[in-house]
Design a protein around this nucleic acid. Structure first.
Lengths: 252, 252
DNA sequence: CGGTGTGAAGCGGTTCACAGCT
DNA sequence: AGCTGTGAACCGCTTCACACCG
C-alpha cells in the first residue's frame, strides 16, 4: 500500500478457521502478511520456477534462499506467514510450494492490464514477455497523440485515451501502467482512478497523488542510478574516514 | 548496498572535522546517511527542481514534503543527516538546498554509463532523456548479437560485447546497466565486474551475484505488478475476514 | 539426526513532540 | 510567533537460536 494505508492493520478479532479444525497446513484466510514479505514472494516464485525447470523436486530453505538471494532464516520466516508448507527434516516440495505462493499472490487468475503512454518505454513494456508469462495480459494500449492511433504495437492497436472508460469497464481492468511524460502523469492517474482502476504502476518521473484505497507503485529509472551514484562517489574517496587505518598519507 | 555489505557500518572512529571548527552549517565528511534517506534524496531533488521551475525560492518543510509525497517530520529528519541547511522560523532556500543535495548524491560530476543488451528495453533506456538531464551520460551501447552491431540507437552505434574492457577503461566507466535476457545476466555481470564496474542497475528478471564492494540495484517490472496483484486480490474479497461482520454467507 | 517453524532479541526507520534559533 | 532540528518513543523487519517434528 503506497497510498497511506495504516488503516488496514485492523485486528482480525476472532480468527474463525474457514473449514474443518485441525488442518495440517494452510493458513487462516485473513492473516496479515508483512509488506516486506509480500515484496519477496515473487522472487521466491521465480526461484522455484527456476528450480523446477532444472528438474529439482524438493529443496531445503537453504537451497531456495540461495536461489532467491536472501538468507535462509528470512526465507523460512517469510514462508511461515503463508502456513506450514514444508516438511521438517526434509524441506519443501518445489511444485507444491510454488502453487501455494502463486495462489497467495493471486496469480491463479489472469489480470488484464492497460498501458497508457506508448512512447519508447510504453513500446518496451507492451512487448515485454515477462508480463504475460506471469499471469498478466496487456489488453489495451492508450495514447493521447492522434498520430499514434491505430498503429500496431506488440499486436495491439494504439487507441485514443478517451476510450479508457469503455475499455476498463468492458474488460474489467483494475491495474493500469503509466508510461507517459511526467507532466501528463497526474492527469492520467486521476482519470484511471475515476474509471475504477485501483492499482497503478507509475513509470513517469513524478509523484502522483491518489485517494485512499488505490495502490501506487513507482519505478523510477534515474532515481536508481542516483542511488548508485551516491555509493559510487563514496567508494571513490581514498580511505573513507573509516577507522583510522591509513591516514598517514593524508598530507602526502 | 544490495550486495551484502553489513561490513560497511564501520565506526568512524575519530571524526576529524575537515576544516575550521565551528562551521555554521554543513556536515563532517564521513557521517553515515541511512540507506532509506539516500533513497529519498533524489525525490527531494526533483521536488526542489520543480519548485524552482515554478519560481519558488523559499519553502517550508511542509511545502517540500507535500511536493515529494512524504510527511514533513520525515523530510526534516532526512535533511538533518546532511546538515543544517534551513533557517528556523523561515524554511529552506530552494536553490541552495538543491545544490547541497545534488552535491551529496554526487551529481555535481557527470557519470558515464554503459548499457548492455539493446533489445526493446535497452532501446528505451538509451533514448530516455531523464538520464542525461540528471547527470548521467550513456557513453556506449553493447550487444552480443552481431546483427545489431553498428546500428545507431539514440545516436550511438551498438558495439560488440567484446569491446567492453576497452570502453570501460577508456571512458572511466563505473556504472553499468544490464538489459539483457535473464539467462545472459549473470554472465554479463561477471564480465562487468571483471572490467572494473562497481555499480550495476539490473533490469533482467533474475538474481545476480556479485562480490563485496559492488552495488547492485534491480528493477523488476513483473515483480511490481505481482505486488499490486496481491493487494488487488485482497481488495476483491468482500469483507476480508476483518472483524467478524458478514460471514453469514460462508455456507451459502 | 536434519531441517522447519517460531519466540525473542536486535536493529533500523518512522513518528512524535518540543527545545532552540531567527 | 514560526519553523527547523532532534532526542526519545515506537513500530516493523531481520536475525538469532532452539524447540519441535518427521
Amino acid at each position: 500500500m503506497t497510498a497511506r494505508t495504516p488503516a488496514d492493520d485492523a485486528p482480525d478479532g476472532v480468527v474463525h478457521v474457514d473449514g474443518v479444525a485441525g488442518r495440517p497446513q494452510g493458513r487462516e484466510s485473513g492473516r496479515e502478511i508483512p509488506e516486506a514479505t509480500v515484496a519477496r514472494l515473487p522472487i521466491y516464485l521465480r526461484a522455484l520456477t527456476s528450480l523446477a525447470d532444472q528438474g529439482t523436486d524438493t529443496c531445503s530453505s537453504e537451497d531456495l534462499a540461495a536461489a532467491a538471494g536472501v538468507n535462509s532464516a528470512k526465507l523460512r520466516k517469510d514462508l511461515s506467514y503463508l502456513g506450514s508448507y514444508g516438511t521438517r527434516g526434509v524441506g519443501y516440495d518445489v511444485a507444491y510450494l510454488r502453487y501455494q505462493i502463486a495462489r497467495e499472490i493471486g496469480l491463479t487468475q489472469d489480470w488484464p492490464v492497460i498501458i497508457v503512454g506508448i512512447g519508447n518505454l510504453g513500446h518496451a513494456l507492451a512487448n515485454f514477455s515477462g508480463f504475460r508469462s506471469r499471469g498478466f495480459s496487456v489488453v489495451a494500449l492508450l495514447d493521447a497523440d492522434p498520430q499514434r492511433h491505430d498503429e500496431l504495437v506488440a499486436g495491439l492497436p494504439v487507441r485514443p485515451f478517451d476510450d479508457l472508460e469503455r475499455i476498463v469497464a468492458g474488460q474489467g481492468v483494475s491495474i493500469g501502467v503509466i508510461a507517459t511524460p511526467a507532466v501528463a502523469a497526474q492527469d492520467v492517474a486521476d482519470k484511471l482512478v475515476a474509471c475504477g482502476i485501483t492499482s497503478i504502476l507509475n513509470f513517469a518521473p513524478t509523484v502522483i497523488n491518489v485517494p485512499d484505497g488505490v495502490d501506487v507503485r513507482k519505478v523510477d529509472l534515474s532515481i536508481e542510478l542516483q542511488i548508485l551514484a551516491y555509493h559510487e562517489q563514496r567508494k571513490a574517496i581514498p580511505a573513507t574516514a573509516a577507522d583510522g587505518g591509513l591516514d598517514e598519507e593524508v598530507t602526502a
